[in-house]
């Protein structure tokens, strides 16, 4: 009997904790930035515009750029062309992202991860960015192809981070908008 009661209580606790996370809302204005300088961030900018979000995109945002923003959306994914265009190394970019995340955490600005590049932005040089952002996020919105090996799902489970998986990039617009409604 005692075991049954404790099981029910545990389930209830998990249910309410889960519900509160699922119902988590984020506030505007939103700063959108890249981690790895892939052009996926430009697609997220377009999706945010279509959802009428009060969002500003700064590809190489630094801690000082966080002033006035209430949510930070980071789009991880490595691009050699993007890093080349920015004139920085992968290590420079990792340092920038790390300090941006630290500053956001200090300022209590929640981080939303949006991974929309599928397997083109997985493994290899992309995963160091994916891991760093996922570990520090409060919500993850991921196009399914990028999670075929359960990379994001396992981080979400281990860290109790709500995760929404969508089939296509275009389908991520609505869940993105809903985070702020």
């Amino acid at each position: 009997m005692k075991t049954r009661i404790s099981t029910i209580v545990t389930i209830l606790i998990l249910f309410f904790a889960g519900s509160s996370l699922l119902a988590q809302k984020f506030e505007q204005p939103v700063l959108i930035s890249s981690a790895g300088q892939s052009a996926d961030v430009k697609l997220v900018k377009m999706l945010a515009q279509r959802q009428d979000l009060n969002a500003t995109t700064v590809l190489m945002a630094k801690s000082e750029d966080l002033t006035g923003f209430k949510t930070l959306v980071i789009v991880p994914g490595f691009s050699s062309k993007g890093l080349g265009a920015a004139g920085i190394s992968q290590q420079d970019e990792l340092e920038r992202v790390r300090s941006l995340i630290n500053a956001a955490n200090d300022l209590k600005i929640p981080i939303v991860l949006m991974h929309i590049g599928g397997n083109a932005r997985r493994q290899g040089q992309s995963d160091s960015f994916n891991q760093l952002v996922a570990d520090n996020s409060k919500f993850m919105l991921v196009v399914k192809q990028g999670d075929e090996d359960g990379f994001f799902s396992s981080i979400a489970r281990a860290k109790n981070i709500p995760l929404t998986l969508v089939e296509k990039i275009a389908e991520s617009a609505e869940p993105l908008g809903n985070l702020f409604k």
Binding site: A39, K42, G82, G84
Partner: peptide
């Protein structure tokens, strides 16, 4: 890219580097 994705074809966007 969004249109192609709706047709089931995934293309990644890449910006042309200004210095290449």
């Amino acid at each position: 890219i969004l249109g192609l994705e709706m047709a089931g074809l995934q293309f990644s966007p890449e910006t042309s580097p200004k210095n290449f």
